[in-house]
Design a protein around this nucleic acid. Structure first.
Length: 492
RNA sequence: GGCUCCAUGGUCAAGCGGUUAAGACGGCGCCCUCUCAAGGCGCAAUCAGGAGUUCGAUUCUCCUUGGAGUCACCA
């Protein structure tokens, strides 16, 4: 049997990384087995509808490199793939269950339901669900209510006693007491199906064989199975995924972990992308949240993920989303980039400093090992545009034995040499050799001359690259201007 | 509260009855070095607790504790 999985997001305009990981695992489960991956949009909740939200889903999957074989945009043999276009198919299924005595009309008002729940809570009852008031209404009462036009929902009759066991690929056999199962609503007053109902109908009619979802569904799965059984359908293979958690500090200063949410940092795929995380790095990272390849490799391409992925290695315990590790991984992806790719991301920042293309290669070399996100380029290059009066104490550096006195002397002696170097020789190798020659001749350490020149030119202690590189990035004219300025400040 | 699930360093994790209990992130130290990175080397840090089963438990069973999820006319 060919495996079919589906990703069924709601168009909320926001793609939580937890959802994205579910999508990824669904995709990997299908691809690994040469199966089919289906995209279905669950938009039955009209209140939650957000303009352009479906595009967020498409854009996310595309950027993430998760491609579907069937979906609203590309069609397929099991359409329509948007739930709101499937509305007419659910009601007959629900009515069929009524005919067979497996479901019933419930005329209870929301107020009554709320009261029932309140009382249950007040009495400290374990079960705070529906009291099954309408489950055994007589035919006469039903007719009467129908004639009065009392609105009703359709509920499924679930077993009152015993227990239900099902198998999950990750968690093994799960057994739930049937008395904990509410008579679930299939069709709402407005005639729309509930999520649970539509989900089962859709999954079955779309031939979904493997249901991959978060483990928050673990305890409601027996209800799904009751539906499959009521219709006499095969129960799909279940793969429940451990939750992704976030760590935060509560009011008392204690560390707490809970389901990853905004208070832990950015959790939306595009939020992370906008912060400078690369889509491939995000995918790679979340793939490893709850699963590890047999060889424990950490940097994996999508192709490798597809090959190595196996359901048996999915872990049961929840994992904490670690932004530090994601950041590291992002850096690894940057380091592995080709020059063209690097430039395509970096150029927008280069342009802010009006950097000429002849410096691109040098910048790539300097920046690549120094950034973990492209957004960091701006601060790294800030010294190119800004040169303010800095603390002269920057010239003091213990390791290179640099002091205000030596700095003043070095700059005085070296400035003429720099000034004698013309534009055509103003490059890293030539400048570097001049420093070394100077140091050798004076019998001093390279650092003693390079430190003050770099400080004088950059005006900051930390620069991406050393003295020669800084001078090249600044250019001859600006370098000399700055060093002269520093010189006069040192002489006062 | 009922039900369900989970439990190896700070984090991700390997392990699937016998190991000096991998690896990665982060931390720390050293080397390299004109700064900061990168890179190289190294260090610290884990089987929640208690009973069993067994010649032998991180590994199997039970209990305790802790954590999480779930109990909607939301998806």
């Amino acid at each position: 049997m060919k495996i079919r999985t589906r990703f069924a997001p709601s168009p909320t305009g926001f793609m939580h990384v937890g959802n994205l990981r579910t999508a990824l695992y669904e995709y990997l489960t299908a691809r690994h087995a040469n199966g089919t991956f289906v995209l279905r949009i669950e938009d039955t909740d009209q209140e939650r509808y957000v303009e352009g939200a479906i595009d967020v889903i498409y854009d996310t999957l595309k950027l993430a490199g998760i491609s579907h074989d069937e979906g609203p945009d590309i069609g397929g043999d099991f359409g329509p793939y948007v739930q709101s276009e499937r509305l007419s198919i659910y009601k007959p299924y629900a009515e069929k269950l009524i005919e067979e005595g497996k479901a019933y009309r419930c005329f209870c008002s929301k107020e009554r339901l709320a009261k029932v729940r309140e009382d249950a809570i007040a009495n400290g009852q374990d079960s705070i669900g529906y009291d099954r008031h309408c489950r055994d209404l007589s035919q006469v009462e039903i007719e009467k209510n129908l004639n009065y036009g009392i609105p009703y929902v359709i509920r499924q009759k679930l077993p009152l006693s015993g227990e239900t066991t099902y198998h999950d690929c990750v968690y093994g056999d799960i057994t739930i007491p049937n008395e904990d199962l509410d008579d679930q609503i299939l069709l709402k007053v407005d005639g729309f199906p509930t999520y649970n109902f539509a989900n089962v109908i859709d999954d079955h009619t779309m031939g979904i064989t493997h249901i991959v979802r978060g483990c928050e569904y673990l305890s409601s799965t027996p209800k799904y199975n009751a539906l499959y059984e009521a219709f006499g359908w095969d129960i799909p293979t279940y793969i429940h995924l451990p939750l992704i958690m976030g760590k935060s500090i509560d009011e008392e200063g204690k560390e707490v972990v809970s389901k990853l949410s905004k208070r832990h940092g950015s959790t939306g795929f595009f939020d992370l992308v906008n912060e400078g995380y690369l889509p491939q790095a995000i995918i790679n990272y979340i793939a490893l949240l709850g699963w590890a390849p047999s060889d424990n490799k950490e940097i994996l391409t999508m192709e490798e993920l597809i090959n190595d992925f196996n359901i048996e290695s999915i872990s049961k315990s929840p994992s904490v989303f670690d932004y530090d590790k994601l950041l590291w991984m992002n850096g690894e992806y940057i380091k592995a980039m080709s020059s063209d790719e690097f430039l395509s991301y970096a150029k927008v920042y280069y342009d802010k400093f009006a950097i000429s293309s002849c410096k691109y290669d040098l910048l790539e070399e300097l920046l690549k090992p120094r950034i973990t996100k492209f957004t960091e380029i701006e601060e790294k290059l800030e010294f190119l545009a800004k040169y303010e009066e800095f603390e002269l104490s920057l010239f003091e550096h213990k390791k290179s034995k640099s002091t205000l006195e030596t700095s003043k002397q070095m700059i005085n002696e070296f400035l003429p040499i720099l000034e004698s170097i013309d534009e055509s020789n103003w490059n890293r190798d030539y400048l570097g050799s001049k420093f070394v020659d100077f140091a050798t001749e004076k019998e001093i350490k390279n650092a003693l001359i390079m430190w003050p020149i770099r400080i004088a030119a950059a005006g900051v202690a930390v620069t991406p690259g050393g003295c020669s590189e800084v001078l090249v990035l600044l250019g001859r004219e600006e370098s000399l201007r700055r060093i002269n300025l520093a010189k006069s400040r040192l002489e006062i």
